[in-house]
């Protein structure tokens, strides 16, 4: 009897020791990261490792030629006429930070409402009485401008273009010197301004810039300085 009981007990013990321990994955999960004091201490020992994104420019502008067509509006000049520019640019990008180029623009002039009314008034007076006097403003409007420029691109960024893709852009500062042909003759001009260049694709770029561009014109009262602001939008091809 005693032997039988011992035998059964031995079997039971053997069964228990041979049985595989139950694997409880959920319990093991629950035991992870439960000590909040330790987690707080970990916060204090922050080594400040930093993750940054470092990527190649989507459009590399090292030793590339940019050929563009632009349209501009001129403000701040003579009160009696307004000028729009159409023109082109040829820009050589030495690297993504610096470029130098040539700008040409053809001026399209028209009278402002004030100028138009003065000329119409003078015309009416003349038609009414050719002998009577009339006054019209002396206009020394621009005909065309040529500039040599340098640009510096210190700030870059990117934006998500309507979920279609990511485009990179650069803000830039521009400075230049050139000549303007006015009605009265040629005059010097210089320019300085800022702009943003959007590099839409490997061969396509867009620019929007605003430049201060002063020059001296000659009206019947003598030379005078005009401080104009030129706002240009450019569409170009990167070669």
């Amino acid at each position: 009897m005693k032997t039988g009981v011992m035998f059964i007990l031995t079997l039971v013990v053997a069964q228990v020791s041979l049985a595989k321990p139950k694997i409880d994955i959920k319990k093991d999960f629950d035991s992870l990261g439960t000590n909040s004091a330790i987690a707080e201490k970990a916060q204090e020992l922050d080594p400040e490792n930093r993750v940054r994104i470092v990527q190649n420019r989507k459009v590399d502008r090292t030793n590339r030629l940019e050929l563009g067509f632009n349209y501009g509006l001129v403000t701040g000049g003579d009160a009696y006429y307004k000028t729009q520019n159409i023109g082109g640019l040829l820009e050589w990008h030495f690297n993504p930070k610096f470029s130098a180029g040539l700008r040409y623009s053809k001026a399209l002039n028209s009278l402002t409402s004030e100028g138009d009314s003065l000329y119409k008034d003078a015309q009416r007076r003349y038609q009414a009485d050719p002998t009577s006097g009339y006054a019209v403003p002396d206009l020394d409007y621009p005909i065309e401008t040529g500039l040599v420029t340098v640009s510096f691109y210190p700030v870059y960024g990117k934006f998500n273009f309507f979920e279609l893709g990511v485009a990179h852009f650069d803000f830039y500062a521009i400075a230049g010197y050139g000549k303007m042909n006015l009605k009265s003759g040629q005059t010097d001009t210089y320019t300085a301004g800022i702009g943003v260049g959007l590099w839409a694709a490997q061969n396509l770029a867009m620019r929007l810039e605003g430049r201060w561009q002063p020059y001296m014109d000659k009206v019947f009262t003598g030379e005078r300085r005009l401080d104009t602001v030129v706002v240009n939008a450019t569409l170009s091809v990167l070669l």
Partner: peptide, 14 residues
């Protein structure tokens, strides 16, 4: 000059 850096703020850009 051909590489650009941005800070990582866990926002995912493809």
């Amino acid at each position: 000059l051909s590489t650009i850096e941005f800070p990582y703020d866990e926002e995912v850009w493809l």
